[in-house]
Every structure is written in C-alpha cells, then in structure tokens.
Amino acid sequence: MQFKLIINGKTLKGEITLEAVDAAEAEKKFKQYANDNGIDGEWTYDDATKTFTVTE
C-alpha cells in the first residue's frame, strides 16, 4: 500500500510517499525519516487517505 507524509516543519515543508505493508510500518519509516531530518512535532494519521501529517 502507498502512504503519504505531509511535513509542516519550521524549516522543512513538503510531502513524501512510500510503500509499506501497513500503517504501522509506514509510521515507523516516516518517523525515522523525520528523526533523520531533525523534524519533531505533533503527528496525526488519516486512515481514509493513508496520510500522516507532522507539524512542528
């Protein structure tokens, strides 16, 4: 399945997509990506659109 991450950071904004088996795997990958890029914020997930959002 394809999942999307919307980044609303203080210095980094944008979207990325990835393939994952389920939402838990996608969340783990997205949070690792955010951590690697210094993004720390409030996370939400919309199951209907398979979209994660992180807002700093």
Rank of each mutant, 00 (worst) to 15 (best):
M1Y: 11
M1W: 07
M1C: 04
M1N: 15
M1L: 13
M1R: 06
Q2V: 15
Q2G: 09
Q2L: 04
F3Q: 00
K4W: 14
K4H: 08
K4E: 04
L5M: 10
L5D: 00
L5W: 02
L5V: 03
L5G: 02
I6Y: 08
I6Q: 12
I6V: 15
I7W: 14
I7K: 01
N8Y: 09
N8A: 11
N8K: 10
N8R: 11
N8M: 15
G9T: 15
G9D: 03
G9S: 12
K10S: 04
K10M: 06
K10Q: 12
K10F: 12
T11C: 07
T11F: 05
T11Q: 14
T11A: 12
L12S: 09
K13V: 12
G14I: 09
G14H: 08
G14M: 09
I16T: 14
I16V: 15
T17S: 13
T17E: 10
L18D: 04
L18T: 06
L18W: 15
E19L: 08
E19M: 12
A20H: 03
A20F: 15
A20D: 08
V21D: 13
V21P: 14
V21E: 14
D22Q: 07
D22F: 05
D22M: 05
D22C: 03
A23S: 14
A24L: 13
E25N: 09
A26L: 01
A26N: 00
A26T: 01
E27I: 10
K28F: 08
K29I: 07
K29F: 09
K29C: 04
F30A: 04
F30Y: 03
F30W: 02
K31G: 04
K31F: 05
K31W: 08
Q32S: 15
Q32W: 04
Q32N: 15
Q32E: 06
Y33Q: 03
Y33T: 05
A34R: 01
A34P: 00
N35E: 13
N35L: 14
N35K: 09
N35M: 12
D36Y: 14
D36E: 10
N37C: 03
N37G: 05
N37Q: 12
G38D: 04
G38F: 08
G38H: 07
G38S: 09
D40M: 14
D40P: 10
D40G: 14
G41W: 08
W43K: 00
Y45T: 01
Y45S: 02
Y45H: 02
D46L: 05
D46Q: 11
D46A: 07
T49L: 13
K50N: 13
K50I: 04
K50P: 01
T51C: 05
T51V: 15
T51L: 04
T51Y: 04
F52K: 00
T53P: 00
T53S: 15
T53A: 14
V54G: 00
V54M: 05
T55E: 13
T55C: 04
T55A: 11
E56K: 08
E56T: 06
E56R: 07
E56V: 05
